[in-house]
Write a protein that binds this DNA or RNA. Structure first.
Lengths: 161, 161
DNA sequence: TATTGTTATACTCTATAACTATA
DNA sequence: TATAGTTATAGAGTATAACAATA
């Protein structure tokens, strides 16, 4: 079967069935946007890794939130989230208290340092997403995609509960 | 500042600025869809890791394709792609030949075993994406998202060349 | 001097299971 | 017996730099 010249350049390559497979685009765009975000967060305690940002912002915004709730939101198990929280504690970003209502559970609270970091991270994350996607998706279409994916995420949360 | 009862349940939590940040949805959906896909590919040589599938299908579909082209498509560096190709070779899925035109470059070819695997993987990947997203995004909206993200991906490729 | 691919390394994430303390 | 969180570990991906061979 002749397929033409050897594919030595990217523009000679088609993506096979991946061309119309949504999971491919989610996965490849995740790599690109996550790498770009990590670059912008270099030097901050939340750089690298997907869930530190989410954990920090939610602890800042929801004093007393539990580790298990964070884990569920991030589709992670408790042990992985626990390690992130260990790091946060070491860096003085949060404190952990045993819940008065349930001796097994913890309540997470942001520190002053953590709150200051959350404020910075909040603006960086929003700006990064905007800057990154503005280069490759027209704003009106971004709104459409966010709308669809937002509902997809919440639907997925319902299914997996 | 009173924010109501302690957030002990997921539905009491809002996502802060992430609620309207596209990168968050790309990142969280990537985790979920990738995990689901890995489960379906258990036992196959391409399970785990994001780029084995892409590499295998493209080598199958583009005989003679170069490692550096694969790396570029996947936004990965050559060393990471090289290690995936090492695995493929060990498993007898591909062969590598030095290019006749350029002694530095390699040409990659699928083996019979690799081609058989590619055929299986092709159908699994397509079906998995469909099954996964059909549960959380109406088909018509999936088409819209694919259309937008496809252009975003190709635009990103252009920018990064 | 630049490019293709390899090797080495250090870091991180992932998945799993076993464990404790409490309910 | 189930749940919240911890600890330990093995496997894999990621990022970076240095390297050899070729252009």
């Amino acid at each position: 079967m002749d397929r033409g010249p050897l594919p030595t350049r990217v523009d000679q390559v088609d993506l096979d069935v991946l061309e119309n497979t949504l999971s491919f685009y989610i996965r490849v765009l995740d790599v690109a946007v996550s790498r770009d975000l990590d670059e912008r967060l270099q030097g901050f305690e939340v750089a690298r890794g997907k869930w530190k940002i989410t954990a920090l912002l939610l602890i800042d915004n929801h004093p007393g939130i539990r580790p298990s709730v964070l884990a569920e939101i991030a589709f992670k198990d408790r042990s992985a989230m626990g390690r992130i929280l260990d790091q946060f504690e070491v860096h003085g970003l949060i404190t952990r208290r045993v819940s008065a209502e349930d001796g097994r559970a913890q309540e997470l609270y942001i520190t002053e340092k953590g709150s200051a970091l959350a404020a910075k991270v909040r603006s960086i994350v929003v700006q990064q997403s905007k800057d990154f996607f503005d280069r490759i998706i027209p704003p009106a279409e971004q709104d459409v995609v966010i709308d669809v994916l937002k509902r997809a995420y919440h639907r997925l949360r319902e299914i997996q509960e």
